[in-house]
Design a protein around this nucleic acid. Structure first.
Length: 233
DNA sequence: GCGACAG
DNA sequence: ATCTTGTCGC
């Protein structure tokens, strides 16, 4: 049985079977009700993870924004050694340690966290956004670019249109047309956020781009795309 | 057994 | 995720 070191993930034996079992266990702790502080957040944050040096280094970027203006107020980048490979369904076990390091470096704790990846829209209802939420206690939601699991009826073409994403009898999130002529986003609750709340927060954080500001800005920094081109001004 | 499979 | 400029289309 192959196992990996597991920094900052309590109760995991390092195995794939153990990871799946722990996901089922942790998913029972996910709360799908809106936390008061998340309903009217003052500070929101976006997190994204990337890799360097042939995947030997894991890099997490976090951007803190003023919820009202959507203007960034702080940005941090954390780098730690990569501990395991990417395994579909087990993404959080690979990226969680870096997310925690970035969270630790933020000057202020966010009221609501946007994570690049799925919340409960996951085979065992514990995508990285949900895992990060239950492990940190913070309200979180997931914004992914591709469906991992679930089905849906056709989505309209008008920006703002959304349809439910369901898996079996479970309502696990939404498909959201965030921008015209762009592939839809998959939005799902992570922790302490309701399905309706997750959709409302993402819509409120859109600024004409496919991705909502928190994850869009974190994405740019994480990919070093920030110090490259400049198209406007 | 076959196909699918977040980042 | 990542390697990577220009280019076609709205």
């Amino acid at each position: 049985m192959k196992t990996w070191p597991h920094p900052s993930i309590p109760d995991w034996d390092g195995s794939i079977a153990g990871a799946r079992a722990l996901q089922v266990e942790l998913a029972r702790g996910v709360i799908l009700e809106d936390a008061p502080s998340a309903l009217a957040p003052r500070r929101i944050a976006g997190f994204d993870v990337g890799f360097e040096d042939d995947n030997r280094t894991t890099r997490a970027a976090a951007v803190l924004l003023d919820a009202a203006s959507l203007e960034p107020v702080a940005e941090v980048v954390a780098r730690i050694p990569t501990s395991m490979p990417y395994i579909p369904g087990l993404l959080s076990f690979r990226e969680l340690p870096a997310l925690f390091e970035a969270l630790r470096q933020l000057p202020e704790t966010p009221d609501l966290v946007f994570v690049d990846g799925h919340g409960i829209a996951h085979p065992r209802r514990l995508g990285i956004a949900a895992h990060f939420g239950v492990a940190s206690g913070l309200p979180t939601l997931g914004v992914a670019k591709k469906i991992l699991v679930g089905r849906h009826v056709p989505l309209g073409e008008t920006p703002g249109d959304a349809v439910e994403l369901v898996d079996g009898t479970d309502w696990i999130g939404w498909l959201l047309r965030s921008k015209a002529r762009c592939r839809p986003l998959i939005v799902s609750p992570g922790h302490r956020v309701s399905p309706q709340g997750a959709l409302r927060h993402v819509r409120a954080a859109l600024r004409g781009y496919r991705l909502p500001e928190p994850t869009r800005l974190a994405d740019r920094i994480a990919s070093r795309r920030d110090r490259r081109r400049m198209s406007t001004a």
